[in-house]
Every structure is written in structure tokens, then in C-alpha cells.
């Protein structure tokens, strides 16, 4: 096995995507923590992280693009692969008002998003560990 192939083991598309998703989850945690911290601040507007919908869009866009025709399974594959990396965006919701002091933090929503984000983060880490375990099996050959 060539060295290049071993290096490729750890930099596959799914690995990078997982990393992107974990980073996003991290960022979302910060944004939610900030929303909760400012729940009583007058004129504060809540922020959100958009990533999943953008990634989905990007993947949809890729799936409709050109795919190379292969007459042999050993041919190079041409077509959508990992796609360009989508980076998460922080958006601020300026249009709504939830409170008398022009604040729009809905505590119930923030707390549920916090729980959701935590579960998602744990799931992602578990998935990443699983991937690493599989690769370790490949490397050790047992």
C-alpha cells in the first residue's frame, strides 16, 4: 500500500464533513449561549447559525451536475464528490419582537435548541469515533 493511500484514509469526504458539522455545532453552542446570556438585555436580537440547509442546497446542486460515464468499474469517477466546503453563517433575526423591551429571545426555544445541539454534537463525535475505529481496524489488519 502506498503512503499516499494511507494518508487519504483520514482525509476522506465524510471525515471532512463530520469535522465541518462538529465545528458548526460548536459555533451554534456559542450563539445559543449568547442568546441565553442576553435574554434580559433590552433591544437585543437573537442570532442563529445556518449550515444544514446550505449544505443540503449545495449537495442538491452537485447531484444535478455532470457525471462522467464509466464503461469499466476501474475507470476514474467523474462527478459530484465532497463538494466545495460550505461554511456556517451567523444570521441575526432583526424582524421579530418577543418582549416589551424589543428583545426577541424565546427562552423555551433557546433551551430546546441547546438540548438538540448537545445531542447532535454527541452523535457527531460518536460517528467520528466510529470512523476512526474502522480505520484503525484497517490499519492493524485485525
Amino acid at each position: 500500500m502506498k503512503v499516499g493511500k494511507i494518508v487519504n484514509l483520514l482525509s476522506g469526504a465524510s471525515f471532512d464533513r463530520l469535522q465541518g458539522a462538529i465545528d458548526t455545532s460548536n459555533l451554534r453552542q456559542k450563539v445559543i449561549a449568547n442568546n441565553i446570556a442576553n435574554a434580559d438585555t433590552p433591544n437585543f436580537k437573537r442570532s442563529d447559525v445556518s449550515f444544514e440547509s446550505m449544505l443540503e442546497q449545495e449537495m442538491d446542486r452537485n447531484s444535478s451536475s455532470l457525471i462522467g460515464n464509466r464503461t469499466d468499474s476501474r475507470h476514474f469517477y467523474i462527478g459530484p464528490n465532497s463538494g466545495s466546503m460550505v461554511s456556517p453563517q451567523v444570521t441575526t433575526d432583526e424582524t421579530t419582537v418577543y418582549n416589551n423591551n424589543l428583545n426577541n429571545v424565546d427562552m423555551d426555544k433557546e433551551m430546546s435548541q441547546l438540548a438538540q445541539n448537545q445531542l447532535k454534537y454527541n452523535a457527531l463525535i460518536q460517528q467520528l469515533n466510529h470512523d476512526i475505529k474502522l480505520k484503525r481496524i484497517v490499519l492493524e489488519g485485525r
Partner: peptide
């Protein structure tokens, strides 16, 4: 009461961050 509840929800957020951080230490174990 408002201050108490706000304090509690921030503690929850802090604990969530903490457990995420602890989980991140398990990567590659």
C-alpha cells in the same frame, strides 16, 4: 424570580458546553 430563572438557564447552557467539551476529549479513544 426573573434573575433566578435567568441564572438557572445560563447554568444549564454552561453545563451543556461542559459536557460537549468532555465529549470532544473522547475523540479517537
Amino acid at each position: 424570580i426573573s434573575a433566578t430563572r435567568a441564572y438557572e438557564s445560563n447554568v444549564t447552557a454552561l453545563n451543556a458546553s461542559k459536557s460537549m467539551f468532555m465529549k470532544a476529549l473522547e475523540i479517537g479513544k
